[in-house]
Design a protein around this nucleic acid. Sequence first.
DNA 1: TTGACAACATACCAACTAGTATGTATCTTT
DNA 2: AAAGATACATACTAGTTGGTATGTTGTCAA
Lengths: 197, 197
Amino acid sequence: MNSTDTRERILQNMFLDIRKHGFQGLRADKVVADMGITKGALYHYFGNKQAIGKAVIDEIIRPNYLAFYHELDQSNDNPIPRLKEHLDYLSEQATDEDVTLGCPLNNLVQEMSPLDEDFRLRMKNIIDLIQQSVAAALERGKKAGFVRAEVDSQAIGRFFFSSIEGSYSLGKVSKSGAAFKSNMELLKTFLDGLEKP
Amino acid sequence: MNSTDTRERILQNMFLDIRKHGFQGLRADKVVADMGITKGALYHYFGNKQAIGKAVIDEIIRPNYLAFYHELDQSNDNPIPRLKEHLDYLSEQATDEDVTLGCPLNNLVQEMSPLDEDFRLRMKNIIDLIQQSVAAALERGKKAGFVRAEVDSQAIGRFFFSSIEGSYSLGKVSKSGAAFKSNMELLKTFLDGLEKP
DNA sequence: TTGACAACATACCAACTAGTATGTATCTTT
DNA sequence: AAAGATACATACTAGTTGGTATGTTGTCAA
């Protein structure tokens, strides 16, 4: 097991613990202790607690969230079915246990935005990219004749993302994947309304 | 200044600090120190930190959030304009500064749901009441001929609340009241689609 | 084969944090 | 007016938290 392995393993476990306890609730030394290693290893790879949080956002959360939207950016298909497929994919993931832990990005946004400007900007960047990706896909869809011309793509981009995050929030407090899925279904019918008849 | 005043003042300041720093980030002794009083007063009124959180939820957040929906429960008007008016009201409140601090309920939901089952259930109760209130209003609206018969009132109740919370989330990370308002406008047009033509 | 560096382990610590124990002034009740 | 009870203030503390200083061991190039 080489050094990058250890770093990756630490990061993964930090990610999981942050999702459960929040960043402020993260006890980094306990996490590594549970892994069978010590603070020596931890502070060898990360200068301080903040660096752990940043690495989790940049190296785990960001690529995971942007994967779908990078694909979307490449596509010239009708964006409406594409977006709906993504919502279906999120619904599939949404077990009670998963939803109960909340959306990792949303969790951090809520907790850290007012506390740390650096964290906030990193997360805002991810969210902006998602919105822009959706908006751009809708604009391409307009040109290709899939999407109604009067649609405000920017506004839909915001609303789309917000609805997903809000649904995670509801699912979290309800401990209910079903509540999340119900909202995804409604969001899909909302998207249908954007399609050119 | 009588005793209840002091208790109320403590609670208000705790509410504000929790909104900024989260419950885990709350430094109760610092808050009272900034008020010019000491831990003696604090622990005279509240047994421990948990009790502060519960009192904030029950005595500040809950009545504040339920006020509109209690009114809604009483009304037999067309619920669609009513709900839209509420969204307008939320939009008016939504300055950049306000949105940046986030929705107090959503903040706590995100932070505390996985950490404290008692907190979670108190918050879930508030949210359930909101959803039920919206759903019941839509059902009355159906009977009175305002609302399309095929509307799934329960699902709309969930989606309505989730959209608002998600919009606060977006506004918070963006530090933008405008983003929140944009979403409220979209949610209003969504509500319009539920009305009987 | 040696020396330099990476990859950890161990032992410590200062600051913080929630909470307690105890004291005191004021107010209320009898 | 005496006797609690209430409303705080002050001083202390045990446990926690994030972090550091200093090892030790393996690796790998010169």
